[in-house]
């Protein structure tokens, strides 16, 4: 079944909420469409979200990796090059802890950023259906639905007060950039 997308662009929050209601009336739940805004709104403003994420897992895995690499480097270099400095033991654990700590945190940071990209589904440079007015404060409702239902949804969004409704053209990849280009120069 071909799936197509529709983006309703609303001027303000009130009309956007009307758009959400219109989609709800058509039987779409909050999980079926995306809301695009230029800054976060309080949770649940557009209806209850049910998304899950595993962002917390990333820094933990990163920390474990960083710790292991730190342990390997500090342990192995000491064993490979046994040279007494300052009367300290050949295998000195306290300085290792300092470097392992840094390694742990470095990898935790890097993995958190990877997690952010993964969970936000970024990068998406070729992403279609977007309108540059969204970063200016407009609110976008983005719905992916079976191709035959898209026009119905577009009409509903228009009725709810959408200033513009952009339809994804088929085939998607070739025409995808069109709305964005148009917006960039607008």
């Amino acid at each position: 079944m071909a799936v197509s997308g529709v983006l309703g662009v609303f001027k303000d929050l009130d009309t956007a909420i009307a758009g959400v209601d219109a989609l709800n009336e058509l039987g779409y739940t909050r999980a079926d469409f995306e809301v695009l805004t230029n800054a976060p709104y309080p949770e649940g403003t557009f209806g209850e979200e049910h998304g899950m994420h595993r962002l917390g897992l990333f820094p933990l895995v990163g920390a474990a990796c960083g710790f292991s690499v730190g342990l390997l480097i500090t342990g192995a270099t000491q064993m490979a090059f046994p040279l007494v400095t300052g009367g300290k033991p050949l295998f000195s654990i306290p300085p290792m802890i300092i470097i392992m700590y840094e390694g742990t945190l470095l990898a935790a940071v890097i993995f958190t950023v990877i997690g952010l990209l993964f969970e936000s589904r970024l990068p998406r440079l070729g992403s279609n259906l977007y309108d540059p007015r969204i970063t200016a404060g407009y609110i976008g409702l983005l719905l992916h639905a079976p191709a035959e239902k898209v026009s119905e949804a577009a009409a509903a969004l228009r009725r709810a007060g959408a200033e513009d409704v952009i339809l994804e053209e088929q085939p998607a990849p070739a025409a995808a950039k069109a709305p964005q280009r148009k917006g960039a120069s607008a």
Binding site: E43, M52, R54
Partner: peptide
């Protein structure tokens, strides 16, 4: 209701 690394969006 979920594991420690996941959580729902509404507290």
């Amino acid at each position: 209701s979920h594991g420690t690394t996941t959580h729902n969006w509404h507290r």
